[in-house]
């Protein structure tokens, strides 16, 4: 079956004072129709830049998509004109940002900000689009949506604002929703409500979701497949089940070890020592080699390709050497 989204060798660079930084480096993945794919990695590994690249919203300057291609149902987004791309944004692909507090415009009512997207893409008049916006507010379980339509963002809590963002994103029934850490900035109790809401809405609307997070347990609840991202590219890709039962990459093992478990009262979470390398000076060979507990001589010599470790399971590590993807 043809994929909804197919990203091939996506490369996005930023011009910084120290040089050209590759935030996303030949990153490839795909998402099927109705599928939820988790994109997991530590802070700074390029998750948000990937999301913005798919929307073609990387700020230029300093950023630029310098290579690769992005196909939405076979249509190459990188070859579209800006005008054609605007018909995709908010309509076929929508995004919920990481920062619900600052992502809404403070001088317009929440309802107006949803209505605007509906009027733009669905060619509806003012009254009709307003009714639809209220309906969207109801859909994301905002109490008293008829009145809340007229609330300004500052009159709402963080969780409510993120619901408004979700309502806005879903208002035109997108084929793909990119949820960039939709709950990270919120209180723990609100986080699970937001994730639950997303999960319900996905089932109701049969859309695909690219769920970005650095929390593997969130992925376990919602996604079917996981892509582990490290320093701008995929290091492992597998079904959720296999990621947990049979992780292939030492980095994935490290991430799994850092999930707090109820049954094992660990004093300190096992975290991978060190940080995501600066895209300006990646280690030679494998990009994880400087932090890897299992590194060998050959890891410094050459970057490993994606090896097949099972059906739909790929690992970028010499330890899994075998058939290349």
């Amino acid at each position: 079956m043809d994929k909804l989204l197919k990203v091939e060798n996506l490369t996005t660079e930023f011009l910084t004072s120290e040089g050209l930084a590759r935030a996303v480096d030949r990153f490839s993945f795909d998402i099927g129709h109705g599928e939820t794919v988790g994109l997991v990695g530590e802070s700074g590994c390029g998750k948000s830049v990937t999301a913005l690249s798919i929307m073609r919203l990387v700020s230029d300057p300093p950023g630029r998509i310098s290579g690769g291609s992005i196909f939405l149902e076979g249509k190459d987004l990188l070859s579209l004109t800006e005008k054609e791309m605007r018909k995709i944004r908010g309509n076929e692909i929508a995004i919920v940002f990481q920062e619900p507090l600052s992502s809404l415009n403070p001088v317009f009512t929440c309802g107006e900000q949803i209505r605007e997207a509906i009027a733009l893409h669905q060619k509806m008049g003012r009254k009709q689009s307003r009714e639809k916006a209220v309906e969207m507010l109801r859909l994301v379980k905002i109490p008293d949506p008829g009145n809340r339509y007229f609330s300004y963002p500052h009159q709402m809590s963080g969780g409510m604002r993120q619901r408004v963002m979700i309502a806005m994103a879903l208002s035109c029934q997108p084929k793909l929703l990119i949820a960039d850490e939709p709950s990270t900035a919120l209180d723990v109790s609100v986080q699970s409500q937001i994730m639950e809401l997303l999960s319900d809405l996905r089932d109701a609307m049969s859309m695909s979701i690219l769920l970005i997070t650095h929390d593997l347990s969130v992925v376990a609840q919602m996604a079917e497949r996981v892509i582990i991202m490290y320093a701008g590219t995929a290091v492992e890709e597998a079904s959720v089940k296999e990621i947990f039962s049979d992780p292939g990459h030492p980095y994935t093992e490290g991430l799994l070890a850092s999930i707090p478990r109820l049954n094992a009262r660990v004093e300190r979470l096992s975290v991978i020592p060190g940080n995501v390398p600066d895209p300006l000076n990646l280690p030679s060979g494998c990009r994880f080699s400087d932090r890897c507990p299992k590194r060998e001589e050959r890891c410094f010599a050459k970057e490993p390709p994606m090896f097949v470790a099972g059906k739909g399971h790929f690992v970028r590590c010499w330890l899994s050497e075998g058939q290349e993807r």
Binding site: R89, F97, S103, L104, Q113, E116, A117, M168
Partner: peptide, 13 residues
């Protein structure tokens, strides 16, 4: 500001 990015993400001109 972030909300400008949101406005662009909606597909506004």
């Amino acid at each position: 500001e972030d909300y400008i990015r949101t406005a662009r993400a909606k597909g506004l001109s």
